[in-house]
Design a protein around this nucleic acid. Structure first.
Length: 555
RNA sequence: GGCCCCAUCAUCUAGAGGCCUAGGAUGCCGCCCUCUCACGGCGGUAACGCGGGUUCGAAUCCCGCUGGGGCUACCA
């Protein structure tokens, strides 16, 4: 009975936070710190907790997924979203989608759009979100600046956060020294000793500054994880994280706590990479006097070599799987199996309704699973042959194909190159194929040494990843820059790309082909070609990347 | 370097001290079905990382080691 165990986990949680409070009172050593001590003693964490835990904890379950729109939607995001979705739906609650775009430099509207598209494609529906709205909006953090400013101000006034004027250089030296001394990396509190007058003067002078979280020097923070139990962190190993950046935007740490509280999130199931910053979040909840949500840190999906699933080594994009012709129900089913394994004798093929029905949060494993494409293939094949009638298959396939490419554009590009309509199929086959079957021979070309081909592919992979918008003109500039760096003509450099991308030396124009194929698939084709030639060693990779960077700047 | 998490077949996992000569699924191999291939059916291969405890008894509990992973940003 999940309700029972969650309830007891919650009980444990409250006990532990209380004791953490008892031992974490810190010695005030400055004006800012004295304010902290004052608010600390006046703060009663238990009142809120007990009031809430007396009710049925499974009432009003609200979960969320909070992706950052900084790239292609990741299958890990789908996995986390699915777990949160299942838990909420299982308990009759709401599932919220929130966009964490506080990194102004890296966030893009394009990425946000594809995240929504990818999750919707998966069939994971959110009750509240940036597109559908809801009673606790806005659901895009960049639109909530006023809210964060207010709460940061509250912490500042209470001395639980402080202004910091330290330079990047000083912080760098400080961390280097700490590492050399085998100490944890942690802000040393220099600006904590600034007098209120100093702070006011420097602010008035317009000095660049951030706001940092005040972390006690002593004591232990106990993080209660639904699956791991109590995880202890000494406060002296918890950094005094930046809460408000110098551009005035909050960091994730502040924003997620404020939003989860305001949006009445009851359970936070997020990736394991957040476990070590959980103490900062708990500290914020206690400073604000809020009850924290129940926490569960989900394992990170892995590459076959067990490292964190990364696009360098494997396809990670949800939309990549769509482009390759996986069915969303198969992908979701596969991810669900990673969260809750089928029991002996139980059919592993199940639809979303069944996944939700049988979902048990305490069954979610905490060891990082390898993303096993073979098993995904098997599941996808079963959906095709067991769940799709011939008509349905045809319908799916044609909808997939028309989603893959714009046919008018293809016609325009193909017409000059064909003699018969039957020439169309081989010319365009690459757009609808998965992995191309190539020989090392095919990648040989007259004007480039093999090592230069490898260089070109390696550089292209990283440059294309960095391209803000995926279109033919952008791709063209990348290939031309690479040609320049190698001292070759663009047309000669393009030749091996034709083979890697389209599987043929004769094709519709390269840059259009790449645009139509999509970033994920292009990355995969280049990786595949590079595997044939021998992937770069670490040393080669580093040396080659220098070819581009400095060469474009001087002379 | 520091802090934290994790550890059953190649892979995903079941397993909460005796039900375990460790179960299921994918992959792989073999046989059957069959005009090919695939599907399907049947069978097989294959694991408790190591060392100490605790216990009548340990895959299950404790400690150490080893291994893997994460974090260590004015990114999330």
């Amino acid at each position: 009975m999940p309700a029972t165990s969650c309830f007891s986990a919650a009980g444990l949680y409250h006990r532990k936070t209380r004791s953490a409070f008892a031992i974490s009172a810190c010695a005030p050593s400055s004006l800012q710190a004295r304010r902290l001590a004052r608010s600390w003693t006046s703060f009663k964490p238990n009142a809120v907790s007990e009031e809430r835990s007396s009710g049925n904890l499974m009432n009003g379950v609200r979960t969320r997924v909070a992706p950052s729109p900084t790239g292609d939607p990741h299958v890990g995001t789908a996995y986390v979203a699915l777990v949160n979705y299942c838990f909420a739906k299982k308990h009759g609650g709401e599932f919220i989608l929130r966009i964490e775009d506080t990194d102004a430099a890296r966030s893009t509207a394009e990425s946000e759009g594809s995240i929504l598209e990818a999750l919707a494609w998966c069939g994971i529906a959110w009750d509240e979100g940036p597109d559908v709205g809801g009673p606790h909006g806005p659901y895009r953090q960049s639109e909530r600046s006023e809210i964060y400013r207010r709460y940061a101000g509250e912490l500042l006034a209470g001395g639980q956060a402080f202004y910091c004027f330290c330079s990047e250089g000083r912080l760098h030296e400080m961390r280097a020294a700490q590492r050399a001394a085998a100490q944890p990396s942690r802000y040393d509190g220099l600006c904590l000793s600034l007098s209120s007058d100093d702070v006011q003067r420097r602010l008035a002078a317009g000095e660049e500054h951030v706001v940092r979280l005040r972390v006690p020097d002593d004591g232990v923070c106990v993080v209660s994880d639904l699956r791991r139990g109590s995880v202890e962190f000494e406060y002296r190993s918890v950094d005094m994280q930046v809460l408000v950046k110098s551009d005035g935007m909050p960091t994730y740490h502040l924003a997620n706590v404020v939003d989860d509280h305001l949006m009445r999130i009851t359970h936070v199931f997020r990736g394991e990479e957040w476990l070590s910053s959980a103490p900062k979040h708990l500290l914020l909840y206690s400073y604000f006097g809020w009850e924290p949500p129940k926490l569960l840190h989900l394992p990170l999906l892995r590459n076959p070599d067990k490292s964190k699933l990364s696009k360098r080594k494997n396809p990670t994009g949800i939309l990549f799987y769509r482009a390759l012709g996986y069915l969303p129900e198969a992908l979701v089913n596969f991810l669900a199996l990673l969260a809750n394994a089928a029991r002996d004798g139980e059919d592993e093929l199940m639809d979303l309704a069944a996944i939700v029905r049988r979902f048990e949060v305490e069954q979610v494993p905490i060891g990082g699973p390898v993303f096993d494409v073979e098993k995904l293939n098997w599941l996808n094949a079963r959906y095709i042959r067991e769940r799709l009638s011939p008509e349905a298959l045809l319908d799916r396939a044609s909808r997939w194909a028309s989603g893959r490419a714009r046919f008018e554009r293809l016609a325009e590009l193909s017409a000059p190159r064909i003699e018969r309509l039957s020439d169309l199929a081989p010319l365009l086959a690459f757009l609808f194929s998965g992995r191309l079957v190539l020989e090392r021979e095919d990648l040989r070309c007259p004007k480039l040494e093999e090592v230069e081909v490898r260089q070109a592919f390696v550089l292209a992979m990283s440059e294309l990843d960095a391209l803000p918008a995926w279109d033919a003109p952008g791709i063209e500039t990348v290939v031309k820059r690479i040609a320049d760096a190698l001292g070759k003509r663009a047309r000669d450099v393009a030749r091996p790309f034709y083979v890697a991308i389209t599987g043929s030396r004769t094709s519709i124009p390269l840059f259009d082909s790449m645009e139509l194929l999509g970033r994920d698939l292009v990355r995969e084709r280049l990786r595949n070609a590079l595997a044939l030639l021998g992937p770069p060693s670490k040393r080669e990779q580093e040396a080659w990347e220098l070819l581009l960077a400095p060469a474009s700047v001087p002379a």
